[in-house]
Design a protein around this nucleic acid. Structure first.
Lengths: 230, 230
DNA sequence: CCAAAAGTGTTCATCTTACACCCATGG
DNA sequence: CCATGGGTGTAAGATGAACACTTTTGG
C-alpha cells in the first residue's frame, strides 16, 4: 500500500465543571485563525513527537491554563470527512473533570478567551463540537452511576448536600436524601472530617472527603460502585 | 501553528468469535511487507477519502472476507510513539463480534492467511496488538453484563445451554442454570421457536431467538439489560 | 433401562424504596 | 422564636442466591 495519506490528527477536550447546581463546560474563543470569534472546545493538532495524552494536556495548559482532576479518552471522531472545512481532520476527543470552584482560567488574552458555560446555555459551537459535547455529556451521566467521578468535580472537602445536588443536577433526577446518604456511606469510601462548613443559615454541616486509596483497594477486592436510584 | 504533521492513521479490528466453549480471535498473517510471517489483527491505513467506519469494514472484507454482526469503536492507541518501527502511527481500534460457527474465512491466499485462535492460545502478535487485544477482551467481558451482545456471537437460533455456556466461558464464572434462565426470560427479549436442536444425546432442547426490536423498544422505555451473578 | 442433557419452583436473605420528624445554628 | 438547611430509622416490597429432582430422548 502506498502511503500518501493526508489526514491530520487533532485532540479536543471536553472539560466539565460544577458550581452551584450547574454543570458547566469550558469553551474557548480564538481571536485569529479559522476559529476567529467562534466558541470551541479546547484542542489542537497533535505534534509528531508527542503522545495523545501529552497533546491534550498541553492544549489544556496553553489554551486555558488548567490541570484537570480526571482525564480519559472519549471517542475518536473520524466519520465525517468534512468536519473541518480546510482538510480532513480526525479528532481524538477527551473527557475531563475539574473542580472549577476555585479555578482561575487563563484570562482574556490577546489570542483567546476561555469561559465556563452552563450546559443548559451553550453558544453555537465550531465544527462538530456540539456533537462531541453531547457524547461527552452522555458519558458523564453514565459514568457517574458506576464510577466515583463526582468527587473530581467537587473540592477536596465537600458537603454531603453538595454531592447530592451534583447527582441530582447531572442525572436530572430527584434523589431521596436519606437513601442517598445511606448508600454512599455504606460503600466506606468517604470519610468525615472534623470541620464544618461556613453556612449562611441552618444547622452547620460536616465536611467529607473521598478516600481514593480505600476505593482502589476495595475495587481490587471486587467492590463495585453503583448509584442508581429509581 | 504550522501544519507539518507526519503522523499516519490506521484502524485495527479485534474480531471475536465463539465456538464450543471457546472464545476465539481472528488473526491474519501477511506473506509480504513488514508484517511478514507475523500474526496480527486485521487492520491497515485509512484512506484520505474514507471514514473510519468504512476503513475497518474494508479491511475486514479485504483481509478476511467477512462482515461482522457487531462493530464499535474501542480505543485509539496513540500514546506510544514507536508502536510501529517505521514511523509514527496512531491506530483507532475497533471491537467486533461475529457468529463464527458457519463463517468461511478468506482462504490461505498468496498474500495472506486468516485464522481463528482461542484466546487462551494466542501466538505472539505484531506491534502492540497484544495490548489492544487485552483491552478488547476486557471490553467484551464488561459489555456482556450490560448489553445483549452475546447474541451476536451465536447463530440466529440457539440453545439456552449455548447462551449459558457462552456467559460462563467468557466471564469465567459458574452460573446457576435455573437462575440464569429465569433472569434472561424475565427480560422478555428472547423468544421460543417451534424447532428443536439436533442433539447427539439427552432430551431435545428448544431453539430460541433474540428479538432485537423488542429490546430496542424496551430500552427506549427505560429497560436496562443486566446479567451479574455472584 | 441407562446415560445424557433439558427443564422447572421455593425458600431465605439482602437490597431498595418510600416516607416524616427532630436538631443546630444565625438572625 | 423563627427560618433554614442538616441529620436520622423503619417497615414493606422487590430482587437475588442457593439448592435437587423430574423429563425426554437415543442407544
Amino acid at each position: 500500500m502506498e502511503l500518501e495519506q493526508h489526514i491530520k490528527i487533532a485532540v479536543d477536550a471536553i472539560v466539565f465543571g460544577y458550581t452551584e447546581n450547574s454543570l458547566n463546560v469550558l469553551l474557548i474563543k480564538q481571536k485569529y485563525g479559522i476559529l476567529k470569534n467562534q466558541w470551541a472546545l479546547v484542542g489542537g493538532f497533535v505534534q509528531d513527537n508527542e503522545t495523545l495524552n501529552n497533546a491534550v494536556n498541553r492544549e489544556l495548559q496553553e489554551e486555558a491554563g488548567i490541570k484537570v482532576n480526571y482525564l480519559e479518552q472519549l471517542f475518536t471522531f473520524g466519520d465525517k470527512l468534512d468536519r473541518d472545512p480546510r482538510f480532513r481532520v480526525i479528532s481524538v476527543a477527551y473527557f475531563a473533570l475539574v473542580n472549577s470552584s476555585k479555578l482561575i482560567l487563563k484570562a482574556d488574552t490577546d489570542a483567546e478567551d476561555a469561559k465556563w458555560f452552563p450546559i443548559k446555555e451553550l453558544p453555537p459551537l465550531a465544527f462538530d463540537h456540539e456533537e462531541i459535547l453531547q457524547t461527552a455529556h452522555q458519558r458523564l451521566k453514565n459514568k457517574l452511576t458506576y464510577q466515583p467521578i463526582g468527587f473530581d468535580l467537587l473540592p477536596k472537602e465537600f458537603l454531603f448536600s453538595d454531592l447530592e445536588n451534583l447527582y441530582c443536577t447531572i442525572l436530572e433526577k430527584e434523589i431521596d436524601r436519606r437513601n442517598f446518604r445511606k448508600k454512599i456511606l455504606s460503600f466506606g469510601i468517604i470519610e468525615e472530617t472534623e470541620k464544618f462548613s461556613p453556612k449562611k443559615s441552618g444547622r452547620p454541616a460536616k465536611l467529607f472527603k473521598f478516600n481514593k486509596l480505600k476505593y482502589n483497594k476495595l475495587t481490587n477486592e471486587g467492590f463495585l460502585f453503583e448509584i442508581n436510584f429509581a
